[in-house]
Design a binder for these strands. Structure first.
Length: 301
DNA sequence: AACCGAAACAACCGCCCCGTT
DNA sequence: AAACGGGGCGGTTGTTTCGGT
């Protein structure tokens, strides 16, 4: 029994102390970022190799942007890359100098939660006072007009009148020539011609299909989407969503120029205080893809 | 001042892949 | 070829911090 307890005590968990960090840093200085399990076998730390590696990668590695909020560019980069790669956080993180996969993952998770909550609140409001003929402004999220954006592996999201955003991703590694570039693409099935920039492809598919679905009963037959995606798209039939997204036959252009972005804040987290209103704007600046993933189905009114 | 909810962050867990034996 | 261990990665959970009431 005592032996078991001793065995248990051998592995330390929980927050890291400065002394432990120091030991870990010294080890890396000496041997490089490898042989993590040897740290414990040598008796340097009572931590597992995995724990050591994680600590190094997420907190101790040089040039990490610890304590910095994600800049606008970084946010956009994450959103774009997530729509392309899915939840490949490590891969996405390679596009963001100073960010770890954990950072990206946490950032995304926070956004998903926030979006789900806001959408949920919005749906609550709409179910109690929805009126299809009423001014759409009453159903727009905090007065902002949003449109669907991009198809991804898991669904689609909304964006505030903003589709082509890659140009602002200064840190984004350019696409190779065999990928979608600045060109006009024709969507044969839908007969929609769209100006493209990289990453906007899926977006346009959704926009085209969304627009089409408003008056095309055969939408499903021509849909290039998976059944899951179609189900998500079908929610657009919900008058509330329709209102949120704006009228399909709106005279507003499908593709608006990118909105001016707020200045990326170099101030560390918790140093930059954001008011409620400002936060709402930031949130609406770029809805992520897959925002519906975490949202329960809305009961039709 | 106290409480509460949301957001951000840190760390662990479990699965998988890959190299070694 | 199979077993094993290390490392990487995504998911999840717990904690901390902060703003609002």
């Amino acid at each position: 029994m005592r032996k078991m307890e001793a065995k248990k005590e051998e592995i330390k968990k929980g927050p890291w102390k400065a002394e432990e960090d120091e030991v870990l840093i010294n080890h890396v200085k000496r041997y490089g970022p490898r042989d993590w399990s040897s740290i414990r076998s040598k008796g340097l730390l009572q931590r597992t190799g995995k724990s050591c590696r994680l600590r190094w990668v997420n907190k101790l590695r040089p040039n990490l942007k610890n304590g910095c909020k994600f800049s606008a560019d970084e946010e956009r980069t994450v959103i774009e890359l997530q729509s392309e790669f899915g939840n490949k956080w490590a891969r996405i993180a390679t596009y963001l100098p100073g960010r770890t996969d954990n950072d990206v993952k946490n950032f995304w998770s926070s956004r998903q939660k926030r979006l789900a909550r806001i959408l949920h609140n919005s749906s609550d409001a709409s179910s109690s006072s929805f009126n299809p003929k009423s001014s759409s402004s009453s159903h727009r999220l905090k007065g902002k007009n949003v449109k669907p954006i991009r198809q991804s592996s898991q669904g689609f999201g909304l964006v505030e009148e903003e589709v082509t955003v890659s140009s602002s991703c200064s840190q984004m590694v350019p696409y190779s020539s065999d990928q979608v570039g600045d060109e006009v693409l024709r969507l044969p099935d839908l007969g929609v011609k769209l100006e493209h920039q990289p990453f906007a492809f899926g977006t346009d598919l959704v926009l085209a299909e969304y627009s089409d679905s408003q008056n095309d009963a055969n939408q499903q037959a021509i849909s290039p989407f998976s059944p899951e995606s179609r189900e998500l798209l079908a929610r657009l039939d919900d008058p509330f969503y329709y209102d949120i997204l704006g009228p399909a036959d709106s005279s507003e252009p499908l593709f608006a120029l990118p909105q001016p972005f707020f200045e990326p804040s170099p101030v560390p987290r918790r140093c930059r205080h954001v008011s409620k209103d400002e936060e709402a704007d930031v949130f609406l600046d770029d809805f992520p893809a897959d925002m519906f993933d975490q949202v329960d189905p809305i009961p039709s009114p």
